[in-house]
Design a protein around this nucleic acid. Structure first.
Length: 163
DNA sequence: CAACAGATTCTCT
DNA sequence: GAGAATCTGTTGT
């Protein structure tokens, strides 16, 4: 299990997203394997960065390789990995993970991922701890339609591992 | 300043 | 399958 290079996140979100599959993230000492992601770029009408920088989404315009955490519907937290170059407003949403010893049903869905890992706004802007344990990502990641949004629904930007 | 929509999930029917 | 919970930024008065 070795840390990912700093350059890993310094690419377009649509490139980083599929590369994140089967990688490991560590938050508060808990390690989770990434199984589903979604890419968001500044030209995406559904992206928080689409309408420019605000206090809430400032981290999304920050340094790549850091976390962007926000509160959705005033209820749930969602966690993203900032990608591209500083100021790009790109990020990859972590939609599902698997954690050893935890029911997979409690770790599928962006809100649940944050709940299980204890992620909240305190992690916004923090450096992401990402690792590679040698598990290969699928050569052809499964691309599925986007859900939970009403704009650009047809854009192929969601990837998940088989099964 | 009020109204509204939203990258969601839980609960009940 | 429908509705609630409830924060944030945008848009319109």
């Amino acid at each position: 299990m070795r840390p990912l290079p700093a350059t890993f996140a310094e690419r377009d979100a649509t490139v980083v997203a599929p590369a994140l599959l089967n990688k490991l993230l560590r938050v508060h000492g808990t390690v989770a394997r990434i199984t589903e992601v979604e890419a968001y770029t500044a030209d995406d009408p559904a992206s928080h960065s689409f309408r420019g920088r605000t206090p809430r989404n400032a981290a999304m315009f920050g340094h790549p390789g850091h976390w962007y955490v926000y509160l959705i519907y005033g209820v749930h937290h969602c966690v993203n990995l900032v990608t591209g170059a500083e100021g790009d407003g790109q990020a990859v949403l972590i939609r599902s993970v698997v954690i050893d010893g935890i029911d997979p049903r409690r770790t599928c869905g962006p809100g649940r991922v944050c709940k299980v890992l204890g992620i909240d706004r305190a992690l916004d802007g923090a450096v992401a701890e990402l690792f590679d344990d040698g598990t290969p990502a699928p050569t052809e990641p499964l691309v599925s339609p986007r859900v939970g949004i009403s704009k650009a629904v047809g854009w192929p930007r969601r990837w998940c591992v088989d099964g």
